[in-house]
Design a protein around this nucleic acid. Structure first.
Lengths: 223, 223
DNA sequence: ATTACTAAAAGACGAGTAA
DNA sequence: TTTACTCGTCTTTTAGTAA
């Protein structure tokens, strides 16, 4: 687990605020120094540090530099956002994700069949998951909403060891599809594609709702 | 405009995460030092600094201290939250505030009658406000939602000078009550009670919706 | 104008101590 | 155990310089 200093997070945030999340942003150290209330030298050093931490990428010009956040950098900020979300409560806002049903690789089915996971879902979500997951590729417009979900109350699922293998941690967010209580499941540390969510439920949703590939699915949070 | 260092914000955030926003939290410098990855001495110095900035209040015991955030401290954090909200987009989530209609002090009516304000509302919101505001005292459950609104796209209203007086800045968030497009208005710098929102609209809502004091009002964001 | 380096100045850090 | 000092050390900052 790498340590990012508050000063560095602050710098990263300013870059993101300038638009460094969506695209690269042109900014000189002098300008960044203004925003951070430091000297250009310090701002420059911050950028070097962030680059070394692989939180940003840069391309230098003679009159400034193009900066953009890496995925890793965005994750650092997302974690901050999540902290603040917890501080200020998650309100009663309703989040709706829409996307198209796709077929996964069958990995979900495998993991959902493992007793240590099943037991935790039963205990923490209140239902035993059907062995299989519903994979949804989000509409572009739902991706921002997906990021917002990070601030909500995820239930953590602990990993375990078995057969000389390690099964990782995961987390789960209660949700609903139609009238069915479900859960969005995200595997622990790995970097998961941001436009895909994997949903479990007590029943086989595909059959229950008569869904097939490319159908539009609507996931609502909270349930 | 006071300057709060990133290290100090970080410390403030940890206190809030421990529950310092809702009530006072018992924490020793040693414990805080653990969370902040610093020595107890540094954590202690941070607390002293935050107290001097009036961002927290403390009461010392022989075996630790009770800490709680002040309103000012919470505002600092809220501003951070708002920054992150802007970075990660504001999603398509729907926020609903409910509360009881109360009668204001007539100040809203006065301010809404001033041409420089009226013109800005027309330009930026798309309507000329009825000269008067609807004051709503939020249900306790809506207060967290109200805080969440801070991360959304507020429209800024500039103040002006007239008759040897200064009229302050304000900001406004488009919303709706029933089928009427409205706006939540918050005066600039002053400390506004967190459980009250002031709503403007192109029409006299009290008459239009047949409302009177103590009626329940439902404000939806976005419109 | 920029970035990045070096070196002097400033400031923060944490061990030790007292209450 | 605490908090909050002091003090020596070390890190960070910024001014200055070069590219």
């Amino acid at each position: 687990m790498l340590m990012v200093l508050p000063d560095e997070v602050h710098c990263l945030k300013q870059i993101a605020l300038l638009g460094g999340c969506r695209s690269q942003v042109f900014a000189s150290s002098a300008r960044l120094g203004m925003e951070l209330a430091t000297s250009p030298q310090t701002a420059s050093r911050r950028l070097q540090a962030l680059e070394r931490l692989q939180l940003i990428t840069r391309s230098l010009r003679s009159d400034g530099q193009y900066i953009s956040l890496t995925l890793k950098g965005e994750e650092v900020l997302l974690r901050e956002f999540s902290d603040y979300g917890r501080i200020f409560g998650n309100g009663s806002a309703r989040h709706v994700l829409t996307g198209e049903l796709i077929s996964g690789l069958g990995e979900g089915r495998y993991y959902m069949s493992l007793a240590p996971y099943r037991e935790q879902f039963l205990e923490k979500l209140g239902f035993e998951p059907f062995p299989g997951t519903l994979n949804v590729r989000l509409d572009p417009g739902s991706i921002a909403t997906r990021k917002r979900l990070e601030t909500l109350g995820w239930i953590s699922i602990r990993g375990f060891q078995a057969n000389e293998r390690t099964y990782g941690d995961a987390r789960c967010l209660p949700c609903r599809i139609g009238d069915h209580r479900c859960g969005i499941v995200v595997p622990g540390r790995t970097h998961y594609p941001e436009d895909i969510v994997e949903v479990i439920s007590p029943v086989e949703l595909r059959k229950e709702l008569g869904l097939s590939d490319h159908d539009i699915v609507r996931v609502e949070v909270p349930p």
